[in-house]
Amino acid sequence: MAKKKGFDVTEHELVPEHEVLSEEEAQEVLEEYDIEASQLPKIKSKDPVAKAIGAESGDIVKVVRESSTAGRTTAYRFVI
């Protein structure tokens, strides 16, 4: 019996681009906004997108959304 292919959540049209930041990139973001990582909005490590991109607890994830009204926006999430 052939193994069933899984659904790649990152390819769905409603899922914005997610990227795990390197330690250096994460530090730059925290310094730019003068915050601690724990002050960022949270995303669980068990979230389907977090799992798909290999995000682990303690990582910071960059989320880039396209919008017809706001254009391209960037947000950050702290993985818990």
Rank of each mutant, 00 (worst) to 15 (best):
I43R: 11
D47W: 00
P48T: 06
Q39A: 13
G54N: 05
S38V: 09
L30S: 13
L30A: 10
V29W: 10
E28M: 14
K42G: 06
S57Q: 12
S45A: 15
Q39T: 03
I43V: 15
P41F: 03
I43P: 04
E32N: 13
A55I: 01
E32V: 07
P48W: 02
V29Y: 07
P41K: 02
K42S: 14
G54V: 00
Q39L: 13
E31M: 09
I35F: 00
D47Y: 01
P41H: 05
Y33W: 09
S57H: 10
K51G: 11
P48R: 03
E56D: 11
D47F: 05
I53N: 05
D34E: 15
P48V: 08
G54T: 05
V49L: 01
K42Y: 14
S38L: 02
D34G: 10
D47N: 12
V29F: 03
D47G: 03
V29M: 00
A52M: 05
K51T: 09
E28T: 07
A52I: 01
E31K: 14
A52F: 03
A37P: 08
I43A: 13
S38F: 05
L40G: 04
K46M: 11
K42W: 11
I35R: 03
S45T: 13
K46T: 15
I43K: 12
I43F: 05
V49M: 04
V29Q: 03
P48F: 01
V49F: 02
K51D: 10
E28C: 08
L40Q: 10
D34A: 09
D47A: 02
P41G: 06
I35D: 00
S38W: 09
E36W: 02
I35Q: 01
G54W: 01
E28D: 15
E36S: 12
A52L: 06
P48G: 07
A37Q: 08
K42L: 12
S57A: 11
E32K: 14
